[in-house]
Simulated scan of single mutants.
Amino acid sequence: MDITPQAVVIPKETDHLEQGKYGPVFPRTPACYGFTIIADVKPGRAEAIRNHGHTLAKALEGDPHLLAPLKLHYLRWVLFDDDTRFMYQGIFDTDFDKYTEDAVALFSRAGVSTAFENLEGFPEDWKTNPDAFIRFVREHHCPSFIEYGEYPYVTADEIKKALRIKSSLSEMLDQLQ
């Protein structure tokens, strides 16, 4: 496995990209897949977004594998411009179509709301209308134009496996001393 750091420039024009169910399938990059959403916060709803962050963190304390079906590497939520705008960044191992379908299914099944409900234009029927959810995400997606990976094209599962092996090896070496 080559672990030489790599970068990929993502084209501005997407007409030539394979079209998935919900639009262009952006290429897998050294950072895997992901997207960034920037949207306006409904007036007075920034604190609800922050509270939702606490709710999600608490849910993950209760079930650390709650978001496992999404094959996530990282999520980042940012409120900016005096709490009037919200940025969501997610890096994951599946393409856009699969990630968004899995997210709608996961949150609907778990009966969990989303911080996105506090954003202007987010569809109220998102749990029963995944197409509206996906349309919102696509309309607010700000594609990156370059992505870099220090350990390129490595999945979250591969990283976790390597860390388990490292831990087991360290434990074995400690026992030999």
Rank of each mutant, 00 (worst) to 15 (best):
F80Y: 15
I91N: 11
L56P: 09
L70S: 01
Q89H: 11
A57N: 11
Y74K: 11
L56T: 14
T84F: 04
Y74V: 08
V78N: 10
K58G: 02
L60H: 00
P69M: 03
D81Q: 14
Y88N: 10
G62S: 06
W77G: 09
F86C: 07
F86A: 08
G90E: 15
A68M: 07
K58S: 10
G90K: 01
P64M: 09
G62P: 08
I91E: 08
L66N: 00
L67W: 02
F86M: 06
K71E: 12
L75Y: 08
I91K: 02
Q89P: 00
G90S: 15
A59D: 10
Y74T: 15
L60I: 05
H73E: 07
L67H: 04
L60M: 15
F80H: 15
D82Q: 08
D83C: 03
D81N: 14
L60A: 00
V78F: 04
A57D: 14
L66D: 05
A59S: 13
I91R: 10
Q89C: 06
W77Q: 05
E61I: 10
A68R: 14
M87H: 00
L75V: 13
G90N: 12
H73T: 06
P64R: 11
A57C: 05
A68N: 11
L72A: 01
L67I: 02
M87P: 04
M87T: 13
M87R: 15
A59V: 00
A57F: 13
K58E: 14
K58P: 01
G90C: 14
V78Q: 08
G90D: 12
K71G: 01
D63L: 01
D63K: 09
A57Q: 12
L75H: 09
Q89S: 06
I91W: 03
D81W: 07
Y88E: 10
L66R: 04
D82W: 09
L72C: 07
L67G: 01
Y88L: 15
